[in-house]
């Protein structure tokens, strides 16, 4: 059963309230919500529909680059570019989905195909002069901050990403408890049986993939405004797609808010590690979280979020 994620929602709101006290805390909060939202969206396709995308960075990159290009080249407001970014991402997702689903690519094959699409985008953008090649693009500051979305303070960013996250959670909850969610999960568990029971699998797979892509494109657009800099490595790299998988596995793919939990554990933890150990010992925090990932995938396949849930069932 899909319950309303009340506790996660309250915790996130409380987290925002607490973070308004401190600039650094707000930064951690924004990053947690940003990656949490992207991972929740990824998991709608991967965890609930069985579409194990390894190329979601493509859609994040589309969001980030569309905004960055509109702002730097034409001086347009991110608000204008945002719908365009989502549109492009959704159209790309539909095109990739139609190709892959028509040819019956599943499981690993779908993962590798999406990975290939995102890698092509990575290399093409790295070569495109008008997108700043591999050096990336800097978003200029100035103008009315509510139009250019370039704030000095951090809290407006926190507020914005909070809204995006809550909207994603509420939309995800509403979809999962309705017909759509049941159809997605039936496709994940057995496509042929689902189709024999009246599920139009092609359409519902496309819907899941495109919705997921659209949400991460919003996150990508937000990233461009927040960091005020985009380059292929940070918004189009494979590492980004893999991170979404890592958060989801650690938090639990069977839960709507599981990926958010994963992000809420790993992002503050790696910030803390960075403070304690210092930047000199580069790689230590990734070693720790890779070990955690392997351990959880082997011994707690449902993720950390399932710990409480499992006890309640038995």
């Amino acid at each position: 059963m899909i319950r309303f994620p009340l506790i996660p929602v309250l915790l996130v709101v409380a987290g925002f309230a607490a973070a308004t006290q401190d600039r650094y805390l707000m930064d951690v909060f924004v990053l947690t919500c940003l990656y949490g939202t992207m991972a929740v969206a990824w998991n709608l396709a991967a965890g609930f529909t069985g579409l194990l995308s390894l190329g979601h960075s493509l859609f994040i990159g589309i969001g980030a680059y569309t905004v960055a290009y509109g702002v730097t080249a034409h001086g347009l407001s991110p608000w204008v570019m945002l719908p365009l970014a989502v549109l492009i991402a959704v159209v790309c997702a539909l095109a990739i989905g139609v190709l892959c689903f028509r040819y019956g690519l599943k499981g690993y094959y779908f993962g590798i195909a999406t990975l290939a699409f995102s890698e092509i985008a990575f290399f093409l953008v790295s070569a495109a002069v008008w997108l700043g090649r591999s050096d990336g693009m800097m978003l200029p500051a100035g103008g009315d901050p509510w139009i250019s979305l370039q704030f000095r303070a951090k809290w407006p960013y926190g507020l914005m990403i909070l809204v995006v996250l809550l909207a994603t959670l509420i939309a995800g909850w509403a979809l999962l408890r309705a017909k759509t969610g049941y159809y997605w999960r039936s496709i994940r568990d057995n496509e042929e049986a689902a189709e024999a029971l009246g599920v139009p699998i092609f359409g519902f797979k496309l819907f899941s993939f495109a919705l997921s892509a659209g949400i991460v494109a919003v996150c990508g657009a937000f990233y461009a405004c927040y960091v005020a800099f985009v380059d292929p490595r940070s918004v189009l790299g494979v590492e980004l797609s893999i991170q979404l998988l890592v958060f989801s596995i650690i938090g639990g793919m069977g839960l709507l808010w599981g990926p958010l939990l994963g992000a809420a554990i790993l992002i503050p933890a790696s910030e803390l590690l960075r403070i304690w150990i210092g930047a000199s010992f580069y790689g230590v925090n990734i070693v720790l979280y890779a070990s955690l990932l392997i351990g959880l995938a082997l011994f707690l396949p449902q993720g950390l979020g399932a710990l409480r849930w499992r006890r309640r069932v038995s």
């Binding site: 991967a46 998988l245 990734i286 070990s291 990932l293 995938a297 396949p301």
Partner: peptide, 12 residues
């Protein structure tokens, strides 16, 4: 997905 996570984790 868990197999994928294990070998990805190993790679990292």
């Amino acid at each position: 997905i868990n197999q994928m996570a294990v070998t990805l984790g190993l790679s990292l």
